[in-house]
Design a protein around this nucleic acid. Sequence first.
RNA 1: GCUGGCGUGGCGCAAUUGGUAGCGCACCUGUCUUGUAAACAGGCGGUUAGGGGUUCGAGUCCCCUCGCCAGCUCCA
Length: 661
Amino acid sequence: MSAQITVTVAGSERAVAEQTTAGELFEGDRAVVVARVNGQLRDLFHALADGDVVEPVTVDSEDGLAVLRHSTAHVLAQAVQSLHADAKLGIGPPIRDGFYYDFDVETPFHPDDLKALEKAMQKIINEGQTFERRVVTDADALVELKDEPYKCELVGLKGGNADEAAEGAGVEVGAGELTIYDNIRRDGTRAWGDLCRGPHIPSTKLIGNAFKLMRSAAAYWRGSEKNPQLQRVYGTAWPTKDELKAYLDRLAEAERRDHRRIGAEMDLFSFPDELGSGLVVFHPKGGVIKREMEDYVRRRHIEEGFSYVGTPHISKEALFHTSGHLPYYADTMFPPMELEGAKYQLKAMSCPMHNLIYQSRGRSYRELPLRLFEFGGVYRYEKSGVVHGLTRVRGMTQDDSHSYVTAEQAPAEIKHLLDFVLGLLGDFGLDDFYLELSTRDTEGEKSSKFIGSDEQWEAATKVLEEVATASGLELVPDPGGAAFYGPKISVQARDAIGRTWQMSTIQYDFNQPERFGLEYQAADGSRQQPVMIHSAKFGSIERFLGVLVEHYAGAFPVWLAPVQALGVPVAEDYADYLGEVLDRLKRKGVRVELDASDDRFPKKIRNASKSKVPFTLIAGEDDRAAGAVSFRYRDGSQKNGVPVDDAISEILAAIESRAQV
RNA sequence: GCUGGCGUGGCGCAAUUGGUAGCGCACCUGUCUUGUAAACAGGCGGUUAGGGGUUCGAGUCCCCUCGCCAGCUCCA
């Protein structure tokens, strides 16, 4: 008879035979894919020791999903090598909603290749191969993997910093012992194997048919453009076919929200080829939204103590040398144009020009904080592959503002600005965002780009961090992400397909005041250097508008809607009556339209519905006789016979309160 | 910038192995107009992104440029 050991299973103690595996504890529960043993994720084949604390990890948990997806990535890799014998393996980690695996292959994958790979994967899955863990020494691994140069490179990186060396590499080589996972067929033969930390699901069978390969694209090995590009295949995997379908439906829904699609459908803006890549024109309806945004933020800046200023779109290049921008960003500024022996540059940021306003006369401490603000039209030569709808353009409008303060005033001003930003995001109804704190890199190849003393960086970073933390919002560190002249807090918002974009920013700058020699006279008569705080509330008005379009899927709150009330007469006869109601609204500043076309009533309702106008006002005989109108809302619900005065009040109130209806 | 995929009237799409560009919506004209997502009829509109090549013949094949999409890298 075998000896007994005691383990704690899901909170209660149990005596089991020695050599019992984690999987045996949860036999019969197919949802359990791995186990957490003493806090560590382990395969179900893991043999338990006396005193182990074991928790089941089910496939629908965050960890369980990651394991499922990581195992699916292995199946993909096996499929790739079965179809392309010379494919070399990179890394293959789970990611949000799926996984990827990188391969070095002679010919990049064509979309049709993915179909063939899916078939090969299904075959492997149906074989019910088990994932078996095997500990190897570094030396043995290097021999066994002699045909896998990328894996060998990872063996050399093993240790706590594998993930730093290559994002995702931590799933291949952990901090501890080196392991290889073998895929074993039912007849006991070895189908395939891969250097991997694990853990894995017990059998490929568990993947079922709830996976799909999504796309392929190149990715630089270990994330550096100095390295060769591998071919990355992205896929997704879910516990059930239904969940896979729900995910695919979500993606399809996101595609319908895409601001580039809605922008065209709703006639908001376009990107004419004749202008060039990354340059947008706003059509009248998009112009309304842009103007509402600008009116709002101009008013709010003035309320928050800013003065509205104006500066030109170009400047002699020396200004950007003084500011220090040119050495850093020359390749992303449009090239200079030469006139009268001087080189002029399109501006990519407004701060140097605001510094000139500050500098235009002597400043007293009594003037501080001095706050300047404008809509700066800036141009950046973004690389061709990154230009993207409204979210990454080459010509944009920044609500660029700068607070000049004493060092002592800086913390309060940063808090003031963060409150301002968060209030603005609330007024626009955005809630899917988080804060990011971008700091400098103190080591690594980029560390030299940051200027200023250690003390300055430390002090500035501390101020930003304290204020950001106090907001109570999620705060994500972004080491190395700072601009060369100082750290920043930024608001990151998500687009329809989950990509995040930088929106508002607050940056602490001790460099430009130094470079421009800015000063003010203090109460004691001495000359002091101010601190400059850059802030942008929308960031780029174009980008913010794009994110708004996706957030609302085009169904804007009333105050932003291009057309706020659309009149639809039941028949031609009632157009004049409805027109009078609309005129009254128009006199109150409401944006109205009357559908006086010769379409019939149902068609007009359909058009109104498709236009996403918040209030459709309908009038027929009943309404006219009663001095009323009928509302039709975006959800198709209706309210009939509303007295005209009440109707007007309802619409005005919705605009005033920035309500979504 | 890199890798791959794409580019057909304003929009969404179609066009067997290369054989001489079609459809829906929108738009225009006419008839029509009474209660909540499409009245009917007729019509206009494309040197198939641009340029070059192969071919008797190119939307379909090849090359270059521009633009778009996805990912990677970058992002003051």
